[in-house]
């Protein structure tokens, strides 16, 4: 069973613990500028929205790569950048409709979320449950449960 990251903007407080955890996982220091997950603040609406790669089944980035440097991890389903194949052409960054593939200038390679090999650091670091790592076939399970909880059994019985 694959698992997937589920992002819930309602619960995000904008603390950026996820960005620190992500950069630590990849870079060995705390550095939001090198995080694969980003939190966007929409100040006027008082909203914070976590955003990262959704690991498309038919992945634009993978399809676009001319050197097959983006490959599927059979265990996690993540689309991973194989760094020794990546030539830094950045075609995948154009192909991704969501902008979640980006570029590390220092290394000359693209960077994207690879689910940390199956145990995403961002989800572990999130203090509010805004980022969770759930059954990949049931990304809507928690939302369904919340709506189910609101169902008024007494009213419907009348």
């Amino acid at each position: 069973m694959y698992r997937s990251l589920t992002l819930d903007p309602e619960k995000c407080t904008g603390c950026l613990q996820c960005e620190m955890a992500c950069s630590w996982e990849y870079e060995g220091h705390f550095n939001p500028a090198h995080s694969r997950i980003k939190i966007f603040a929409f100040h006027q609406e008082g909203r914070f929205v976590p955003y990262t790669c959704t690991q498309c089944a038919d992945a634009w980035c993978k399809n676009a790569c001319p050197v097959e440097a983006i490959q599927i991890n059979a265990e996690t389903g993540a689309k991973e950048v194989v760094e020794n194949l990546c030539v830094g052409c950045k075609v995948c960054t154009i192909a991704c409709p969501f902008g979640t593939v980006n570029y590390d200038h220092a290394r000359g390679k693209v960077m994207k979320c690879d689910l940390c090999g199956g145990d995403p650091a961002c989800a572990r670091a999130c203090p509010t449950g805004a980022i969770t790592f759930v059954d990949g076939d049931w990304p809507g399970y928690e939302k369904m449960r919340q709506w189910a909880e609101r169902t008024d059994n007494l009213a419907s019985a009348q």
Binding site: T13, C15, F48
Partner: peptide, 17 residues
């Protein structure tokens, strides 16, 4: 009150929006 907000790295999030 719209919501609460955290400062950087804060797991309390007492800020008022």
């Amino acid at each position: 009150l719209v919501r609460n907000q955290a400062c950087f790295g804060c797991t309390i999030a007492c800020g008022r929006i």
